[in-house]
Design a protein around this nucleic acid. Sequence first.
DNA 1: AGTCAAGTCAACCCTAAGGTTGAACATGCA
DNA 2: TGCATGTTCAACCTTAGGGTTGACTTGACT
Lengths: 124, 124
Amino acid sequence: MDDQLSRVFSALADPIRRDMVARLAVGDATVNELAEPYSVTVQAVSKHLKVLEDAGLVSRSKQAQRRPVHLEAEVFDLMTKWIERYRQEAEQRYQRLDAVLAEMAVEDTDPASNRVPRVRGEAS
Amino acid sequence: MDDQLSRVFSALADPIRRDMVARLAVGDATVNELAEPYSVTVQAVSKHLKVLEDAGLVSRSKQAQRRPVHLEAEVFDLMTKWIERYRQEAEQRYQRLDAVLAEMAVEDTDPASNRVPRVRGEAS
DNA sequence: AGTCAAGTCAACCCTAAGGTTGAACATGCA
DNA sequence: TGCATGTTCAACCTTAGGGTTGACTTGACT
């Protein structure tokens, strides 16, 4: 778990952390404010915030003893880009498949041949 | 880790699994084909596929001994929706903050007062 | 100075996640 | 029937993740 994309996805895999993001989308909050709704200790919440911060989803300033937490919207783009890229490819492929199936209906039936393309996809 | 959104994010938190999604976006593939590029056993890849399948990202048909893996594009929408929702809120808030700061520049400087809104955000 | 409040750090516990090896299960083919 | 191929199952190991408690820091307010 070292690259940013992994950290971001991993951070949002936890319901509490997603919930905190939802809360922070509405406005900055302190650790105690964030901890209040949950039945976990404030230390646990502090850890969750560290995970979100390491993922770049959140930043913490200092204001006296308080550490207001702020949601960073930019990182969301990273995810969206990744997702959209493969979703679109998959959907296009699906449409292409429809075309192929339509064409196959005209020709003779030959279920044995493997029509799957053998192209190698590039990394993350 | 029980709800779908958690499973999806968690599934994509692993670089190998993201890579497999990238590969599958280009076309269906068998377990062995998917395993080839990596230095892990085919059993490990089989486990990864189970994770992706449980998340709804992938489906497996049966074709003789082979189990061709197919990418399901719909689940991506679930993520995209979640992300977009909070990204937009955060960005709007950011713009509102700009407005507030611009207004503050006119008034007197008062760094002590806490201008952060105290609204409670709803869940995942 | 003394004390309270807000957060973090450190040590620990327990479970889940990713990896391995080895055996088992299915299906095509000689 | 026998064997090779493709995939999964089961048992195990090791590490990372989320939780706890307890001690510590930092700053505000008497």
